[in-house]
Design a protein around this nucleic acid. Structure first.
Lengths: 344, 344
DNA sequence: TTGTATGCGTTATCAT
DNA sequence: ATGATAACGCATACAA
């Protein structure tokens, strides 16, 4: 069987390519009977439009760019995974990119996506307000951009995330209720969510009359989850031990840190949860196998992916002035799973 | 600044589009000076060829399809990650797909990739000889296909993996040398590598005069790492305990099982490594944080990704009869990391 | 060595 | 309601 395209269909049905195209695109200016005849023939011969030709003509693709800090983080991995399943249903193809939390790489990725003529972009920015101007240009003039997870960003668009301060509040509160008062908060560099999470942590302390101590907010300034953050963290906790300020509970503010801290504490011969209770933000289904099983605040990745596409696809398909729109923020609810690391 | 394409470059330099195209494509039938003039102008204006137009004309894309069982496995994730970095350098775009170990989904993915006109395909098949006929057709008539990891497949092409039997032999031997003799082998459904790994396991037993026991080859027939394999495994080991046949060492034959087994053993109040030593195939950098830190056989993902592209790109770029070629198998060396789970 | 003309598969504009 | 034709950006056969 030869190549099956609009021209060959037209020839077979004694129609012009234009008419066939109209039938295929559900145009109104075509006779119902003709349309059905074309559709039937196309279906029978399993016709698939050539996406490249289509794009060359229309300037539009079915590509969705996905820009995330890294895949080697359970949360982002799960999110992308869900996105894949859904995008396929809608006949969109995903083009995922990693930024390693670096603005230059993010810019490269965005440039690349533009050249690929993506129809839309889903992004969790490298950090708060990274590439703001570029993203704004893209969103206004080029294709819709939607933010997820790291939604503390000036770009005016739909934002999908969780209520970071509330979730951190709940986690901190849980530790307080278990009788812990020297609670440390572990955070990475400023990726936008950090501020809110610290706020939730502080609020919980304040609500229960526990004085906030600056030294209990511990930064680990990594760019990449594969980096050696362990020794850095170990130093910090050694110092706290030495000055007799060792916390008896820790809230892990990022996916990566929540996992790594367990090894650090073990190295310092601190027992979890007896000496130090730990709860962390993370989506890994490995939490059960960690040492010990880790209590986690789990983001609803499936729901986030669904909502993201539900918002993006209409933006792609309806032509409109995105600059003037009013966008909503969506804060979904996370699930807290209490495991051994907080089982006091 | 207006659109920058071949036509606009030609106009700016008082040349014809054809000449500009030739300069850009490093044609021999062009004067060096002219070529440089075009190249300089193109570079200065950051010209990027429109991949869609290019494809429409040439019938070729810069897309590489990557088909793997799932992303939620540290090994595949690392591999894809490395592939990304390398593909970008060569100006290829990756189109990753997951099969969940299911032949139908694999077929769908392959069909999709064909429709997208990919230039080549990198695949770790759903299982031994899944979609053999289809893959053969694709490789012979459509675009080059390269196998990695699960290389027990009839498709005649380049295959990149590790020496499964040898690596399993070494791991088993290590446990024997530590004095363990009741060694179980954990394996998933037949994904091609399983056979070889069991062979290595058996050889090691045989070499040290340890009788092989069928009940020590333990199948966990899962399709997806997120499945609940734990209870199934727990049942098996409970029975072994009851019949007083509990092994004192375990070799984990897959990524997923190696991680999960630790939780199962903990649930059964078995101490690792005292009661049972464990070593597993896996690439997770979380091995250090597992309970206890897991000894691992780690595949050289970076090297595998590099080699895969080094083999694939020439196949893509040189037209040739792939059917008649002689292909080599590449068995790379894995690294064994001994951690606490074998520290007897 | 360079230019002219054509076509890849599709959609859009203008006729009819 | 349908057809003829041009155009998207590029590469190439052929002409010069």
């Amino acid at each position: 069987m030869g190549k099956i395209n609009i021209k060959s269909i037209a020839a077979a049905l004694n129609l012009s390519p234009a008419t066939v195209s109209r039938a295929l695109n559900d145009s109104y200016e075509i006779r119902e009977e003709t349309k059905q005849r074309v559709l039937a023939y196309a279906a029978k011969h399993n016709y698939r439009p050539n996406p490249f030709a289509k794009h060359l003509k229309t300037g539009k693709t079915n590509l969705i760019g996905v820009v995330i800090p890294f895949l080697s983080s359970p949360f982002f991995l799960e999110f992308i995974d869900e996105l894949y399943k859904l995008a396929m249903l809608h006949h969109y193809t995903l083009l995922p990119f990693q930024t390693q939390n670096r603005e230059e790489i993010e810019k490269e990725a965005l440039d690349f996506l533009i050249r690929q003529n993506v129809a839309g972009i889903i992004i969790s920015p490298a950090f708060e307000n990274s590439n703001t101007a570029l993203l704004r240009d893209i969103h206004h003039q080029y294709c819709p951009v939607i933010l997820f997870d790291r939604i503390q960003h000036d770009l005016n668009t739909y934002k999908i995330g969780i209520h970071n301060s509330l979730e951190t509040f709940k986690a901190t509160e849980e530790l307080i209720k278990k009788g812990r008062t020297r609670i440390a908060f572990l955070c990475g560099k400023d990726i936008g969510n950090t501020k809110d999470r610290i706020r939730g942590y502080k609020n919980a302390l304040h609500n229960y009359g526990i004085p906030f101590q600056k030294e209990y907010v511990i930064d680990a300034d990594y760019q990449d989850p594969t980096e050696d953050i362990d020794s850095e963290l170990k130093e910090v906790f050694k110092k706290l031990q030495a000055s007799n300020h060792m916390p008896n509970a820790i809230v892990g503010g990022t996916d990566t840190l929540s996992i790594k801290i367990l090894g650090v504490l073990a190295d310092l011969d601190l027992r979890v949860p007896d000496d130090v209770a730990v709860i962390g933000f993370t989506n890994t289904n490995l939490a059960d196998y960690l040492n010990p099983a880790l209590s986690t605040i789990r983001q609803p990745t499936q729901q986030m992916a669904q909502l993201t596409l539900d918002l993006l696809i209409p933006l792609i398909e309806k032509q409109q002035n995105r600059q003037g729109m009013v966008y909503e923020n969506f804060l979904l609810e996370a699930t807290t799973c209490y495991r051994k690391s907080t089982d006091i």
